[in-house]
Design a protein around this nucleic acid. Structure first.
Lengths: 228, 228
DNA sequence: AAAAAGATTAATAAAAGGTTAATTTTATTA
DNA sequence: TAATAAAATTAACCTTTTATTAATCTTTTT
């Protein structure tokens, strides 16, 4: 889970943002001033810090400088009512990854934070084609590859479609009828024979991990079981 | 040097931003519409794309979708007079790294672009010498040259475009459909035959380094694998 | 035990892919 | 503008891959 530190002295805005970000599945710690923020940073690790600029005692810019010097790798962004150009430029010159002008729209804040963390964590060359974890196997439906340790098994289109179909209903029964009409287009005697052949292929490929099994329910269909 | 593609139909704003960004030591190419932008992207590599949202013919959101599907690794940001929340959210949901509301302040644009490039991908897409490292090869899409040690292979335009296309989606599947519609313009039987010929050429050129291979996924597409 | 359904391996034919060469198109230059 | 060169497309031919069908054996159900 992504963990954020919010530094905001205004208690109503602080509370609102904290609750909203929690709802959006962020882990969030709220500090009400700079000193507290620095104390928290000594003990915990964060993915991103969100700083208000105008705060009593220590303003956000000063705090950002300290954070940058002490923990240079943690990205931070500003929230500010001061939307003067000079302030925005100052924010970025201190190394901010973003500068949001108040009034803050919580939804916009969330999508910006997500865009930032996605880029930062996952990196530039992240594939949109994701891999499915299947016990000790990795299955990539886009490239039709099934990996087990160093070994790569190239699946055919039908094999890949069938495995994906079963995986989407894993631990649930997939009816012959549904598989055949969805993948083959027609539910008849010959296609059903064909389905048996492909089930057999998949079982062979998946035999390296006993936690992954394709079970038959007599006269009903098949079932991809993924154990614990 | 960092290389940007600006897509902006308004000529005075386009000119202003182009000149300003040049002054700030960016290499910048300005396209006035989506079609032109896609043509340029076939031949050149960029670190960041800046898109206007409201444009005739093809709007920025539609263009962004195409860019994301074809060249998933290039970050893009929006410039827009439409500051409605729904537009900002749409921009980020398409995968934008930032969304700036017009009127644009050039200085703020520059610091945001710099912050992005510093954080995200310094020198990932365009290296200083503009050359792409491909195992033991150096590929320069601008000069269409592929170097291996002392040897220089001159690629034709098609060969170069195809290699660039595959490289931008390296280790991911590039669908026949996407390659053909992007490079040939039309996805038909004959162009697909032609594609096979060019794949064959590239494989021959790239055969000196076994870490670089072009794999086929039957009935789906091709995949440039760059190992370790 | 008989009949039906399922599993597995192998054989076959169709489609897709790979490669080289010939032909057409496009660009260059004399 | 005609001759030449280069590039892209099309053709021809061969190889590989794939889905289907067949053949045979095993399991399940009644």
């Amino acid at each position: 889970m992504r963990k954020l530190l919010l530094v905001e002295d205004d208690s109503s805005l602080g509370y609102l943002l904290t609750e909203y970000l929690k709802m959006k599945d962020f882990q969030i710690v709220w500090a009400t001033n700079g000193i507290e923020a620095l104390e928290i940073l000594k003990k915990e690790v964060f993915d991103l810090i969100i700083l208000d600029v105008m705060m009593p005692e220590m303003d956000g810019f000063t705090l950002a400088e300290k954070i940058r010097d002490l923990y240079s790798s943690i990205p931070f962004m500003f929230l500010s009512a001061r939307s003067l150009k000079i302030d925005v430029l100052k924010g970025f010159s201190l190394g901010a990854v973003d500068y949001l002008k108040k009034p803050i729209d919580e939804e916009e804040l969330v999508v910006r934070v997500e865009a930032l963390l996605n880029r930062l964590n996952i990196g530039i060359n992240t594939s949109l084609q994701e891999e499915i974890i299947l016990g000790g196997y990795l299955f990539n439906p886009a490239t039709q590859e099934l990996k087990y340790k160093d070994e790569i098994i190239s699946l055919t289109s039908r094999e890949s479609e069938l495995l994906l179909f079963l995986w989407r209903r894993k631990n649930e029964l997939s009816l012959h009828k549904d598989i055949l009409t969805s993948i083959w287009g027609e539910n008849d005697y010959f296609n059903r024979k064909s389905l048996n052949v492909f089930i057999s292929h998949l079982r062979k490929y998946l035999s390296k991990d006993p936690r992954i099994v394709i079970e038959n329910v007599h006269n009903k269909g098949f079932l991809l079981k993924v154990k614990e």
